[in-house]
């Protein structure tokens, strides 16, 4: 399905919701919305526009510009064979968005990853834990103010290693 057809379908499905379409370089239909309408937008995209798969949930960090984060969702419709991208800007102090797991359970891990990597809260996610970094890790690695080589990367291991030494006997 070509981009104009997709745009027409999306615009029809999102009647009454405030959004603007922007021209992406790759030609994908891209919507920019405010956070307040996201919950309704997800429901409409899922039920009326027929987007039945969540492809990705991620964020882009524009540090030190404000608003700092730009959330990106991408959805695929198998029946119409087309994609749509949704974007939403977030300030650092107020980085939370509604979850889209009620419509697309498959977005669960993507949202957990986004929380892990950027520290963005997903309201309503049933199990928002770190996904890739261990429990107890202090930082959000994909933020631009986090150095590539990490901050004390071995901290958790050293804590574990101390415990191991205390209770560990080589010949036991």
């Amino acid at each position: 399905m070509t981009a104009p057809q997709t745009r027409e379908r999306v615009v029809k499905a999102l009647e009454g919701i405030a959004f603007e379409t922007i021209d992406a370089r790759d030609g994908m239909v891209t919507l920019r919305v405010e956070r307040a309408v996201l919950g309704e937008l997800f429901a409409r995209l899922s039920d009326r526009a027929g987007f039945d798969q969540n492809t990705l949930v991620t964020a882009v960090d524009h540090f030190p510009a404000e608003p700092r984060f730009e959330m990106v969702w991408q959805f695929l419709s198998y029946d119409h064979n087309d994609r749509v991208r949704v974007k939403c800007s977030l300030a650092e102090a107020d980085a939370h968005v509604p979850t889209c797991t009620p419509q697309w359970p498959g977005a669960s891990f993507s949202e957990r990853e986004c929380f892990d990597m950027f520290g963005i809260q997903f309201d309503g996610h049933p199990d928002l834990r770190r996904l890739l970094m261990p429990e107890g890790y202090l930082h959000h690695p994909l933020r631009k103010d986090f150095p590539h080589a990490g901050i004390e990367p071995d901290r958790l291991y050293r804590e574990w290693d101390k415990k191991r030494r205390e209770g560990w006997q080589p010949n036991a």
């Binding site: 039945d52 198998y78 697309w104 359970p105």
Partner: peptide
């Protein structure tokens, strides 16, 4: 098929 789509399988 429906579950696979919603679970982001491909």
């Amino acid at each position: 098929v429906e579950d696979a789509k919603r679970l982001s399988l491909s």
